[in-house]
């Protein structure tokens, strides 16, 4: 692996007596796609939120581009973005207005050209002037992905980016992400409940269970180590333990 862009060391988060994340450590290299797997409540979302500076860790450290997140928040977040099926953008703005606001927020230049480019790339041309509240869930997913890619991040956090998309668009989105990685060296932390997608997209996978890392490696390695037929069977085995 090339030198790590993201370094997480002994990261923990406790909410009162409940430990959501329990001393996890991992790295993501430049241009690497790391899959984060685990059943509901395993600590994936809390890990994401800590890496985006939205939740303060109880202990441990998060470093990106060689800088500590706590003390270099602005510099790091300028180069990071995220997309999640579970978030939205302001409903009363059109698709294009939302993208323009995001571009301004990140201090992008040539905003109109960048927005045009993203609209074209994600095939949003027919509904770029539509109010966000009128989008279907699949269109909303594409919009949140567009807002994440618009700012040309070096690290991207994706929480189920293809959930609610039809197979054709989901396939196109995966292709766009792989192209971006190829072209710009984009590093991605990726979650999905689609095991085939995880196998296709991830260079390595981390399995979380009750806040701890219980398995780490390539999809093939993990399947072999657990003696299962595929990643889905590994998931079921871990989730039911």
């Amino acid at each position: 692996m090339s030198s790590p862009v993201v370094e997480v060391r002994n990261l923990s988060k406790r909410f009162g007596g409940f430990t959501a994340v329990d001393g996890i450590s991992f790295e993501i290299g430049r241009g690497e796609i790391l899959g984060l797997l685990g059943p509901n409540g395993a600590g994936k979302t809390t890990t994401f939120q800590m890496m985006l500076g939205l939740v303060t860790p109880t202990s441990g450290s998060i470093r990106m581009f060689g800088l500590d997140l706590q003390s270099n928040r602005e510099t790091i977040l300028q180069q990071v973005n995220f997309s999640s099926t579970y978030i939205s953008l302001p409903f009363s703005l059109t698709v294009e207005e939302n993208l323009r606001v995001v571009a301004r927020l990140y201090g992008m230049s040539n905003i109109a050209a960048r927005v045009d480019d993203m609209v074209k790339k994600l095939e949003m041309g027919d509904w770029r002037h539509k109010l966000t509240r009128k989008l279907s869930s699949g269109q909303m997913t594409r919009l949140t992905l567009a807002k994440a890619l618009l700012t040309e991040p070096k690290v991207l956090f994706l929480d189920e980016p293809t959930a609610s998309l039809d197979p054709d668009i989901a396939h196109k989105i995966r292709a766009i992400l792989l192209d971006e990685r190829q072209a710009t060296g984009l590093s991605i932390l990726y979650t999905s409940h689609n095991m085939r997608e995880m196998e296709e997209m991830s260079d390595r996978i981390i399995f979380l269970q009750r806040g701890k890392i219980v398995a780490e490696g390539t999809a093939k390695d993990i399947v072999a180590r657990f003696g299962q037929a595929d990643l889905e069977d590994v998931f079921l085995k871990i989730a039911r333990e």
């Binding site: 985006l52 928040r73 978030i87 953008l89 995001v102 990140y106 807002k147």
Partner: peptide, 18 residues
């Protein structure tokens, strides 16, 4: 409140906005 109603706080505070 507009940001809360739009569920936009996460987008804002996961950006470099202070």
């Amino acid at each position: 409140l507009e940001e809360i109603w739009a569920r936009n706080l996460m987008n804002l505070f996961a950006s470099p906005l202070t």
